[in-house]
Structure formats: C-alpha cells, structure tokens
Design a protein around this nucleic acid. Structure first.
Lengths: 345, 345
DNA sequence: TTGAAAGCGATACCAA
DNA sequence: TTGGTATCGCTTTCAA
C-alpha cells in the first residue's frame, strides 16, 4: 500500500495550519528527523556538516518550529519542572516576594517553576493532579498534603517533595514556618512591656486559619502560667468590623493586642484612635511582617519581623534534594522571627 | 528473538521503584492496556463488565497508578492549560487578587491555569518557551510580546492569546489596562482642586516603568494646554528616599502630587508630614489602587480606584476565544478608573 | 556524516 | 466485552 504523506489540505491563510513538527522540518530541509534533532539540540557527540546544519536551521526558522515539550519529556523520562501549587488565598506581599525570588533562583539552576492553580481539589486528589505532570520537585505551601500525598508524588517520580508549613510531613523535606514563634514573640514582648490582658486578632477571612491559629497558640503559650490572659479577637478586614471592635474596646478591658499582622494592626489602630483609645498608653499594639507601613504609621508600629533565608539557599536545597533523592528528609526553620519595637508598644 | 519484558530488577523498598504505567496496571489486572484505559476514563462508548472494572481499579489503586499528563496530551493533540507567564516584578495586591480569582473562574470552566516562571528570557525567546508547552490559551501580562510572539504561539496551537497591557498587539485579544487614564484622572482631580504645579512620583524600582510611564504620560496629557505643570519625581520605596524628597519639597514649589499608588503615597505623605509640610493645605496628595490603607491614613488619602471586571467574565472571554479561534481579536478595557476624593486633596 | 527505527505512555479505532 | 495495534513528537542507539 502506498503511504500517502499526511499533508493537510491547503487551508485559508487565516485558518491555523497544523503545528509543524520536526518531521516537517526534516522534509523541508531534505534530511532525516534524527539530523534535525542533532542540529537543534547541538548534540555534542555527533558532528553535522555546516551546510546541513544551516539548511536545518533555515527550515526550522521558516516553519516557525517549536519543539513539543510533552513529547520531549515523555521520551526523556523526566522533566526539570518544580511545581508549586497556588495557595488557596491570594498571595500576600511576603509570599509574592518569596515566590518571585525563589523562581529566579531556581531558574538560574535551570529549573522551571510552575505555579499550578487547581482550585477545588483536596488532599490526595490534589496530589494526584500534581503527580500527573511528573514534576521533578514539588513545593507545597500550607497543610493539605499528608504522607499519602507525598507517597503518590514520589511514586510518580518526584525526586524532592518539600512542604512549607508549621510541621513536617512524613517523607518530605520541610521548610518550617514557625507562626507559633511569631505569636510567642509578640505576646512575650507585650508581657515584658507590662501588659497583662492581651488580645490576639484572629482574621475572619477564610483560609487564614492556617496562619492565625498557630499565632494565637504561640501567644497563649508565651504567657502560660504568668497570670496574664490571652483573648482571641475575631476581626474582618473591613472598617466596620474594626469600628465595632474598637467600640467594645473599653468593655473588653484589654491593655495590649497582637494584631495578627501589620495590615490588621493598621486597621485596628486606626479604629482605636478614632474611638479615642490611646496607643500605646491605653492599648499597646503590635503587628507582624515588618512591612513598610509599620514604619510609616504614627505611632510607629511595633512588629514581629519575619526574616526569610535567601531564596538562593532554598533553591540549592531543592537542587540537592533532587540530585540525591535517597537522602533523609531535612527540616529547616524558614522563619527567623524577631520583635522590632517602635512606638506602639 | 524472544522479547524480555522490561521488568526492572527488584530494588530495595526505599529506592524509588520505576513509575507505574497503565501497562503495569494491565499486567496486574490480567487485562490489556486498552481495557485499563476504558475503565479509568469511564469511556462511555465501551462497556466493561463489572468484575473486570473492579479488577482494574484495584490494580491501579494498589500500584498507586497516576496517568502521565504528557503522554496523554501528546496523544490527544491538545491540552486544557491556560498559561500565564509570571510577571517580572513581585505581584502587588491587586494583581494577586486578580490571578487568584481568574484561576478559580477558569478552574470552574475546566481549564488548568499555570503560572510559568521563566526569568531571563526575552521577547520571542520567551514566547518560544511558552509555546513548547502547547497551552490552549496564553494570558501575557505586560509588554514584551510582539506580533511575532503571538504568531509563534498560535502556530504552536494556542487557540487564544490574550495580552494584558496598555495597548493591543496584532493578532491577540487585548485586556487594556489604561494606566494613562489613572494618571489622567489623578491630574485632572488635582487641577480641579486648584493645584497648578503638580508632581508625579515615578518609582525607581526597576520593572515598574511599564506602569509608571503611562501614568505619568496620562497626567501630562490631562493638564496639557492649561498652563499647569507636571514634574516627574523619582522616588525609591525607602524612607530615606522619601525623606530626601520631602526635604527638597519647598524648593520644588509644588502644590499637588500624584504619588503613583497608595503605597508610595503613604510613604511620601508620611515624609512630608515629618517635614512639616501640611497635607492637603501645602501639598495635595492622591494615590491609586484604593487599597484599604488609603481609608486608614490620616488625612484620609484620595485615590484613583481601579475597578476590575469580574474574573468570571474574563474567564468566559478566554473560553469563547478558545472555542472560536477564528474570531477577530477583541479589545476590552480592563480598568475602570474613578477618582475617590477623601481628605488629602 | 547521515539515516532507519525503537520506544517513551496513553488512547481510540478496528477486529475478534 | 475485550485485545491488538497504530499513533502522537521527539531523542538516541545502531548501522551504513
């Protein structure tokens, strides 16, 4: 039977022609697909004559040939993709910065970072969805990945699984975000400043519990056994909610507050001032994250600075884990939380 | 010659066994790969007996089988991936929110959004890198994609290319971010409030020119021919830089300033107040983005609110473009910029 | 220096 | 109802 080449019928110029493959390039250049591959990948072990090389390159150029990543990685049996599932809440400034730097650092190590946005999947189902992409490494923010999920990813060829959260997960490397330490530092500081009835703002926005709960716990822990009290203060990120809280302030009888982070602190401090509550005399306020705004507020906002290690170091950690997948999972403290005292406490 | 099945040598339990394939599942279940595919994809046209079905599912479960996305999409000839190149600067709050919502909306339409972080690539080289993934749609923030790049993506099978920027690109749908309109609105407002010598903050941070330049141009345009002046004010996002600018303030002889956005406005306003410059009497200040902080500052900060259309609508736009790739590219205003007057102007 | 061909993993057509 | 097999695009070994 005569093979009829799979040439698509000529189409109108506007209609998308079928995507050119290396076979098309080979045909146009009058060489084999192998030669095309050699030329375009600059294969060292094989020498291609200069004229042939040029013919291939011209043909590829002319067709607008772009290799097919899926085909390539299927053949290669591995990828250089580092997968980061997108977090369930819009990224804050600290996280945005972290992802940006981390991406840059991994790019320099020749990895491709991909943030994968699949809402609506949970637990192991999510892990399976990530595993389908066969990433060489996975960096998972927050909880939601259990030992099961880690196993799924590893079976699917992930050579490094790194979690970003308050506690390690079996089988995975861990970057530990010590939110409890943030709360502890804040409460300790308030205590040291003579405050004994401490409020802790707990955002009502869904998805933030993963941060706010350990911060609250840390604060509780810090004053445990001292006689000082810690009361959770639910607060939505709206002026109304803050005004409501400020209106109840004197009844609450609190003399210090850890406001979850600098943004909630700004919100609360503003409402307190409108209510005539003096900061820090009547209420000491401390935030967290050490954003620029904490330095700009009046009174200047005390805060808990969260110092992240260099993105480069973290990228190298991932790289090491990829190169030596057998190694025992490491745990690293990602945060260094230090209190920065300004005028609000 | 007898084919020896490619069974890997038994390895120690800790060493990662090779990734199970559908062939492995078939072998364990004692059926063909075709049957495995039918069962796991719930193929409607083919009926599989209940016992077989269960055997296959048990086998898949036992092996921890996860299909290989690359192989699948290679075979299928298309993907449901919407690619968003990560922006060159860390995302701000507005953009983070936008991406988050957009991702959710597209997920509900059964697309997978992927933010692709490849720093260091430029122009058409970047477009080629994106094209390798054969996304069904690409949403490119900022400039840097020319008609060439659009063509590359389309030839690689992208059925929709959408740019997010100040002006449309040939061949692509455009979501127009009218930063000039933001600057225009701000300057017009200052003019209407009687200000005639207007400063416009231009951040010194690299990567922000794509926003700051059109905002400045818009401001210039707004007062063109009125006799009022517009002066660019370079400012880094540091207290020192702001203090320096504030120290020179009286010499500059300005009576109003559009501070690029709310965050720079806060920085500048704080420095001006430290310097004894009264806002708004001596200098009217207006920001942009209408962040929460603009309502919390004292004096309350006037700002230019940037209203984005619903993420759902945008997702549907992408979906439509995918379904009808032949359609003429549409241009949509992404912004609706409105001045919100508060106490700082 | 170049080409032929096997094979990566999954799917869908055609037969049985 | 199930199995054999061609195919997607690419890389690489082996032969020529």
């Amino acid at each position: 039977m005569v093979q009829i080449p799979n040439t698509p019928a000529p189409t109108s110029p506007s209609a998308p022609r079928s995507v050119p493959t290396s076979a098309d390039v080979a045909r146009l250049a009058g060489v084999s697909r192998a030669t095309v591959s050699y030329v375009l990948n600059n294969t060292g072990a094989v020498r291609i004559s200069e004229p042939t090389r040029r013919r291939v390159q011209r043909a590829a150029e002319e067709l607008g040939y772009v290799p097919h990543a899926a085909a390539r990685s299927l053949r290669a049996g591995h990828t250089r993709m580092v997968l980061m599932p997108a977090p369930p809440v819009p990224a804050g400034p600290l996280y945005s910065q972290f992802v940006h730097d981390f991406q840059g650092a991994l790019s320099r190590l020749d990895y491709t970072v991909v943030q994968y946005g699949a809402s609506g999947l949970h637990g192991d189902e999510a892990a399976r969805a990530w595993a389908e992409l066969r990433p060489v490494a996975v960096l998972v923010p927050g909880p939601g990945l259990g030992p099961q999920g880690v196993a799924v990813l590893k079976r699917a060829g992930a050579r490094a699984v790194v979690t970003l959260g308050t506690e390690p997960v079996d089988g995975a490397h861990a970057l530990l975000t010590d939110h409890a330490g943030v709360g502890r530092g804040a409460a300790r500081h308030l205590y040291a400043r003579g405050r004994r009835r401490i409020g802790v703002v707990v955002p009502e926005e869904p998805g933030l519990e993963m941060f706010s709960a350990p911060r609250l716990d840390g604060a509780r822990e810090a004053v445990h056994g001292t006689g000082a009290t810690v009361s959770p203060l639910p607060l939505a990120y709206t002026e109304e909610s803050a005004a409501g809280l400020a209106a109840r302030w004197r009844d609450l009888g609190l003399d210090g507050v850890f406001a979850y982070n600098d943004e909630y602190a700004m919100l609360l401090m503003s409402a307190l001032q409108d209510e005539g509550v003096r900061v820090p005399e009547d209420a000491a306020v401390i935030g967290a994250d050490d954003l620029m705004l904490s330095r700009l507020l009046r009174p200047r906002l005390s805060t808990v600075r969260i110092a992240l290690p260099s993105a480069r170091g973290l990228a190298e950690l991932v790289d090491r884990a990829v190169r030596d997948p057998g190694a025992t999972p490491e745990s690293h403290e990602l945060f260094e939380a230090t209190v920065v005292q300004r005028d609000s406490t």
